[in-house]
Protein backbone atom coordinates (compact mmCIF):
# COMPACT_ATOMS: atom_id res chain seq x y z
CA UNK A 1 0.00 0.00 0.00
CA UNK A 2 1.25 3.43 -0.90
CA UNK A 3 2.05 5.77 1.98
CA UNK A 4 0.92 9.40 2.17
CA UNK A 5 3.42 11.66 0.38
CA UNK A 6 3.24 14.26 3.11
CA UNK A 7 3.40 12.49 6.47
CA UNK A 8 4.75 9.14 5.24
CA UNK A 9 2.84 7.61 8.13
CA UNK A 10 -0.62 6.63 7.00
CA UNK A 11 -1.77 4.97 3.77
CA UNK A 12 -2.61 7.32 0.89
CA UNK A 13 -6.33 7.22 0.20
CA UNK A 14 -6.98 10.62 -1.33
CA UNK A 15 -5.83 11.95 -4.70
CA UNK A 16 -5.20 15.62 -4.15
CA UNK A 17 -4.91 17.98 -7.12
CA UNK A 18 -3.89 21.56 -6.71
CA UNK A 19 -3.83 24.12 -9.52
CA UNK A 20 -1.76 27.22 -8.94
CA UNK A 21 -1.02 29.59 -11.82
CA UNK A 22 -2.08 26.93 -14.30
CA UNK A 23 0.46 24.50 -12.90
CA UNK A 24 -1.07 21.25 -11.80
CA UNK A 25 0.31 19.40 -8.83
CA UNK A 26 -0.95 15.93 -7.99
CA UNK A 27 -0.37 14.27 -4.65
CA UNK A 28 -1.46 11.09 -2.97
CA UNK A 29 -2.34 11.83 0.60
CA UNK A 30 -3.92 10.30 3.66
CA UNK A 31 -7.21 11.66 4.98
CA UNK A 32 -5.64 13.75 7.68
CA UNK A 33 -3.11 15.49 5.47
CA UNK A 34 -5.72 16.00 2.74
CA UNK A 35 -8.15 17.70 5.11
CA UNK A 36 -5.25 19.73 6.41
CA UNK A 37 -4.34 20.83 2.88
CA UNK A 38 -7.94 21.86 2.34
CA UNK A 39 -8.08 23.75 5.61
CA UNK A 40 -4.89 25.52 4.67
CA UNK A 41 -6.32 26.25 1.26
CA UNK A 42 -9.28 27.93 2.87
CA UNK A 43 -7.36 29.80 5.53
CA UNK A 44 -4.25 30.26 3.47
CA UNK A 45 -5.46 31.27 0.06
CA UNK A 46 -6.97 34.68 0.86
CA UNK A 47 -3.88 35.36 2.91
CA UNK A 48 -1.64 34.56 -0.05
CA UNK A 49 -3.67 36.86 -2.25
CA UNK A 50 -3.40 39.57 0.35
CA UNK A 51 0.37 39.30 0.36
CA UNK A 52 0.44 39.45 -3.42
CA UNK A 53 -1.69 42.57 -3.35
CA UNK A 54 0.63 44.22 -0.86
CA UNK A 55 3.60 43.33 -2.96
CA UNK A 56 2.02 44.80 -6.08
CA UNK A 57 1.12 48.05 -4.24
CA UNK A 58 4.71 48.27 -3.14
CA UNK A 59 6.02 47.83 -6.66
CA UNK A 60 3.54 50.30 -8.03
CA UNK A 61 4.45 52.97 -5.49
CA UNK A 62 8.14 52.60 -5.95
CA UNK A 63 7.62 52.97 -9.68
CA UNK A 64 9.56 49.84 -10.43
CA UNK A 65 8.63 48.43 -13.76
CA UNK A 66 8.62 44.67 -13.40
CA UNK A 67 10.54 44.21 -16.62
CA UNK A 68 12.97 47.08 -16.21
CA UNK A 69 16.56 45.93 -15.93
CA UNK A 70 18.02 46.30 -12.48
CA UNK A 71 20.45 49.16 -12.47
CA UNK A 72 21.21 50.07 -8.92
CA UNK A 73 22.18 47.87 -6.02
CA UNK A 74 19.10 46.75 -4.16
CA UNK A 75 18.64 47.99 -0.61
CA UNK A 76 18.41 45.46 2.21
CA UNK A 77 17.39 45.90 5.85
CA UNK A 78 20.64 46.15 7.84
CA UNK A 79 19.24 44.11 10.75
CA UNK A 80 17.75 41.05 9.08
CA UNK A 81 19.09 41.40 5.55
CA UNK A 82 15.63 41.32 3.98
CA UNK A 83 15.96 42.94 0.56
CA UNK A 84 13.12 44.99 -0.82
CA UNK A 85 12.51 42.37 -3.47
CA UNK A 86 11.65 39.83 -0.78
CA UNK A 87 8.91 42.07 0.58
CA UNK A 88 7.75 42.79 -2.95
CA UNK A 89 7.49 39.03 -3.42
CA UNK A 90 6.08 37.82 -0.10
CA UNK A 91 4.28 40.85 1.35
CA UNK A 92 5.95 40.11 4.70
CA UNK A 93 8.64 42.13 6.45
CA UNK A 94 11.68 40.41 7.91
CA UNK A 95 11.94 42.07 11.32
CA UNK A 96 10.83 45.08 13.35
CA UNK A 97 13.71 47.18 12.02
CA UNK A 98 12.40 46.83 8.45
CA UNK A 99 9.72 49.36 9.47
CA UNK A 100 12.43 51.88 10.26
CA UNK A 101 14.52 51.03 7.26
CA UNK A 102 11.74 51.15 4.66
CA UNK A 103 9.96 53.94 6.56
CA UNK A 104 9.42 56.61 3.91
CA UNK A 105 8.20 54.05 1.39
CA UNK A 106 6.11 52.28 4.00
CA UNK A 107 3.96 55.24 5.03
CA UNK A 108 1.88 55.48 1.86
CA UNK A 109 1.36 51.72 2.01
CA UNK A 110 0.14 51.88 5.62
CA UNK A 111 -2.19 54.74 4.78
CA UNK A 112 -3.59 52.75 1.90
CA UNK A 113 -4.22 49.73 4.15
CA UNK A 114 -5.40 51.44 7.33
CA UNK A 115 -6.30 54.97 6.25
CA UNK A 116 -3.73 56.08 8.83
CA UNK A 117 -0.07 55.61 9.56
CA UNK A 118 -0.07 56.54 13.24
CA UNK A 119 -0.73 54.17 16.14
CA UNK A 120 -3.11 55.47 18.80
CA UNK A 121 -3.74 52.33 20.84
CA UNK A 122 -2.04 50.41 23.64
CA UNK A 123 1.58 51.16 24.48
CA UNK A 124 3.80 48.57 26.18
CA UNK A 125 5.46 49.70 29.40
CA UNK A 126 8.87 48.23 28.67
CA UNK A 127 9.41 49.11 25.00
CA UNK A 128 6.92 51.94 24.68
CA UNK A 129 9.76 54.46 24.82
CA UNK A 130 8.57 57.97 25.39
CA UNK A 131 5.07 57.50 24.02
CA UNK A 132 3.55 56.99 27.45
CA UNK A 133 5.36 60.04 28.78
CA UNK A 134 4.31 62.17 25.82
CA UNK A 135 0.69 61.08 26.23
CA UNK A 136 0.82 61.82 29.95
CA UNK A 137 2.14 65.32 29.24
CA UNK A 138 -0.66 65.90 26.72
CA UNK A 139 -3.22 64.92 29.36
CA UNK A 140 -1.69 67.24 31.96
CA UNK A 141 -1.66 70.10 29.47
CA UNK A 142 -5.35 69.60 28.84
CA UNK A 143 -6.01 69.71 32.60
CA UNK A 144 -3.88 72.85 32.83
CA UNK A 145 -5.94 74.65 30.21
CA UNK A 146 -9.08 73.59 32.04
CA UNK A 147 -7.69 74.82 35.40
CA UNK A 148 -6.71 78.19 33.91
CA UNK A 149 -10.13 78.60 32.33
CA UNK A 150 -11.72 78.03 35.73
CA UNK A 151 -9.21 80.39 37.36
CA UNK A 152 -7.91 77.66 39.66
CA UNK A 153 -4.44 79.17 39.67
CA UNK A 154 -2.99 77.17 42.54
CA UNK A 155 -3.87 73.93 40.80
CA UNK A 156 -2.59 75.32 37.49
CA UNK A 157 0.79 76.13 39.01
CA UNK A 158 1.04 72.61 40.38
CA UNK A 159 0.17 71.12 36.98
CA UNK A 160 2.69 73.37 35.23
CA UNK A 161 5.46 72.15 37.58
CA UNK A 162 4.51 68.53 36.90
CA UNK A 163 4.58 69.11 33.16
CA UNK A 164 8.04 70.70 33.41
CA UNK A 165 9.33 67.74 35.37
CA UNK A 166 8.01 65.26 32.84
CA UNK A 167 9.26 67.29 29.89
CA UNK A 168 12.79 67.09 31.25
CA UNK A 169 12.55 63.30 31.03
CA UNK A 170 11.61 63.44 27.36
Amino acid sequence: MMLCEKCQERPATVFYTEVINNKQKKMQLCEVCASQMQAEGFGGLPQMNLHNFLASFWNQMSGVHPFAPKTKEEEACPSCGTPESLFAQKGLFGCGDCYKHFGDRLEPLLRRIHGSSAHTGKVPVRSGGKVLLARQIEELKASLRYAVAREEFEKAAELRDNIKKLEQQL
Binding site: H51, L54, K100, H119, K122, V123, S127
Partner: peptide, 21 residues
Protein backbone atom coordinates in the same frame (compact mmCIF):
# COMPACT_ATOMS: atom_id res chain seq x y z
CA UNK B 1 9.74 40.25 26.88
CA UNK B 2 10.79 43.34 25.00
CA UNK B 3 8.34 43.76 22.16
CA UNK B 4 9.07 45.12 18.71
CA UNK B 5 7.26 48.44 19.02
CA UNK B 6 7.55 51.78 17.26
CA UNK B 7 6.33 55.03 18.80
CA UNK B 8 4.88 55.89 15.47
CA UNK B 9 3.57 52.64 14.01
CA UNK B 10 2.74 50.78 17.23
CA UNK B 11 3.26 47.02 17.50
CA UNK B 12 5.32 45.82 14.54
CA UNK B 13 4.12 42.72 12.72
CA UNK B 14 5.37 40.58 9.84
CA UNK B 15 2.48 41.68 7.67
CA UNK B 16 1.78 45.44 7.62
CA UNK B 17 -1.98 44.75 7.61
CA UNK B 18 -1.67 43.78 11.30
CA UNK B 19 0.63 46.60 12.47
CA UNK B 20 -0.51 49.19 15.01
CA UNK B 21 -2.68 47.54 17.64
Amino acid sequence: LEYAFSEKYGYLTACPTNAGT
